[in-house]
Amino acid sequence: MEHHDNQQHLISYGTYITVWLSLLILTGLTVAVAGVHLGKYNVFIALLVAAFKSSLVLLYFMHLRYENRLFHAMFLVVLFTITVIVALTYVDTLAR
């Protein structure tokens, strides 16, 4: 078990480049959407894209995808907490 944990998973350059290109495209999407007036939905789209991008970085660049399930669970706890916090903040700002 421990031996398995310590094994390094090799990720091909192709995957890295695909992820990098996806990040660039998603950044372009954020910039493009910011120029379109969608009211309160602008923020939601920006947050969704940002969450997706950070997930890509964590999963591939930081190898989370190939890690123990415990780390996946921990990551989901963090993501869930942040989602709740952002949602509760918007209970104020959207209803103000």
């Binding site: 709740v84 509760l88 209970v91 104020d92 700002t93 959207l94 209803a95 103000r96």
Partner: peptide
């Protein structure tokens, strides 16, 4: 989930 109770009189939305 409860931080907003420090802000009841600060002008936050009624719903919040």
């Amino acid at each position: 989930l409860v931080w907003g109770h420090h802000m009841f009189t600060s002008g936050m939305a009624d719903l919040a």
